[in-house]
Amino acid sequence: MKLLDMTRKYGNATYNYPFEPYKVPEGFRGKPAYDYEKCIGCTACAVACPSNAINVKLNEDKSKLVWEFNCARCIFCGRCDEVCPTNAVLLSDEFEMAVRFDKDNLKERGELDVECCQKCKNPFTTSKLISYDIERLKKAGWDEATLAEKTKYIRTCPECKKNIAVENSTQYFVRKRK
């Protein structure tokens, strides 16, 4: 009886959760929510993810870059959230994550178009990343002329860029020796 009195005084502490919604506290780290429209495929999140829950890879025929998130492996550390330059992945409030029978339901995929190198025609980044770069350079105060001049190589892959640089410099050496 005494206990009952006490409960009456302090009220009921039990959350009525499965029967009514539960509100998570502020700053709760729930399932990372992916915004496909914003993702530019920069792979920063895949590099940062400590448990490889996010993988960004070319698909088999190398025609698309596939961003894949596997919630079963995620440890909710928030590093993807921290590094994403466009806030395309943000930890959400979602905590109801259990799935029955099929683990594939925990996955999320996004396909992005790849950009092929002007020179060697191999895919090296996404088209969206390049338009994002150019957009940012514009916002950084570059005018059209500088932009055209400086972004000449932006559609060339790092490997070809290296080769071009080496070719140019050796040319210079050869000429000098003559």
Binding site: K31, Y34, Y36, E37, I40, C71, M97, V99, D104, N105, L106, K107, E108, R109, G110, E111, L112, D113, T126, S127, K128, S131, Y132, I134, E135, R136
Partner: peptide
């Protein structure tokens, strides 16, 4: 949760 697939987005920044 369900398997989510996103495809054919725009290439706009």
């Amino acid at each position: 949760l369900e398997l989510k697939e996103h495809k054919n987005g725009s290439n706009e920044s």
